[in-house]
């Protein structure tokens, strides 16, 4: 039992959980922004895959992590651009197009990966770490929390920035109005379509960044279907956060722990089936919902196209 508190185990657990949770954090933040504006990105998983693949190609060929991460943002935003044009601009069905984007991303990245890297199976070097001075000397936490890739800290800061943006800026007000009362926003002279397209692109960019993190910091190489449902988990986290951005940190870490705890336990010789652990957070959330059921708050115009003049 004392093994459970050993330094190695705790370090592995915390740092593993952090690495597993950061892609969820970015993706769920993006999804949260776009849900606030009334767009449900079923295709989030697809944005992440696009981001993961392009970031790998760029990081592998240039050797630059930063360029790779930027490539992830661009690729994710590209996926979201499809969504923005077809669903926000042309009012096509958000679920059908979202699923089509996932299938396109899965198929095309697997195809390109097969064409380019099937024989060589290249991988990236170990990711760089950014150890925060002084804090890195704290036992356990120093090695796990304060010696991570710099993008981890960016993600955490971003959650608070998004909160500030949504609640305290006029852009945030427009975003929320687009999801809550699009007519009112239109009357106020702000374009609902533009606002929603921007929000969708945010979801794409952040989802793509999450995918890039998955490859560059997490796995070190691209494999087809690498996201393994992370996009859907991120949607769940975003919805459970009910529009409050900092909650995505909590949600992501909860799910991140469950995705990584089995690996950490193996370090100290305890082997439990991953199936149990990975179900756990979902079971907890369901139990909490059953016990304290209350209306899950979502913007009232979520997933509904906006047609001017229509009631």
């Amino acid at each position: 039992m004392s093994d459970l508190l050993s330094q190695d185990f705790l370090t592995a657990l915390i740092s593993g959980a952090l690495v597993a949770s950061v892609p969820l954090l970015f993706a769920s933040l993006g999804e949260l922004i776009s849900e606030q504006a009334g767009v449900l990105n079923v295709g989030l998983e697809g944005y992440m895959l696009f981001g993961a693949f392009l970031s790998f190609v760029i990081a592998y060929n240039t050797g630059s992590e930063l360029l790779g991460l930027l490539g992830g943002i661009v690729a994710g935003a590209f996926g979201a651009l499809i969504m923005a044009v077809l669903c926000v601009r042309m009012n096509l069905d958000q679920i059908v197009i979202g699923i089509a984007i996932i299938l396109l991303a899965e198929g095309s990245t697997s195809l390109l990966n097969d064409a380019a890297y099937a024989e060589t199976r290249p991988s990236l070097g170990t990711p760089s770490e950014f150890a925060i001075p002084l804090l890195k000397d704290i036992p356990i936490l120093g090695e796990s929390v304060f010696s991570q890739h710099w993008i981890v800290y960016v993600g955490i800061a971003l959650a608070f920035f998004v909160r500030w943006m949504l609640l305290r800026t006029s852009a945030g007000l427009s975003l929320r109005a687009a999801g809550e009362q699009p007519q009112a926003l239109d009357v106020a002279g702000v374009s609902v379509v533009k606002t929603r397209m921007l929000a969708t692109l945010c979801a794409g960019a952040l989802g793509g960044l999450g995918g890039a993190f998955l490859v560059i910091v997490g796995a070190g190489s691209f494999t087809p279907f690498i996201t393994q449902g992370a996009g859907f988990i991120a949607i769940v986290i975003a919805m459970l956060s009910r529009g409050r951005a900092p909650w995505t940190i909590l949600g992501s870490i909860l799910f991140g722990i469950s995705l990584s705890v089995a690996t950490a336990l193996q370090l100290i010789g305890i082997s439990i089936p991953t199936d149990y652990v990975q179900m756990l957070p979902f079971i907890v959330v369901i139990v909490v919902l059953v016990l304290f059921a209350r209306r899950s708050y979502l913007p009232s115009a979520l997933a509904l196209p906006y047609v001017r003049g229509e009631r």
């Binding site: 919805m239 459970l240 199936d275 179900m279 979902f282 209306r295 899950s296 979502l298």
Partner: peptide, 26 residues
């Protein structure tokens, strides 16, 4: 949850799906 409390069923069915996949494998 949906019928009595209006809890959004997109989240709950998705979560039950993940649990179901896990239970089937267990």
């Amino acid at each position: 949850l949906r019928g009595s409390h209006g809890v959004n069923e997109i989240i709950t069915t998705l979560m039950m799906s993940f649990i179901g996949i896990g239970v089937a494998n267990v």
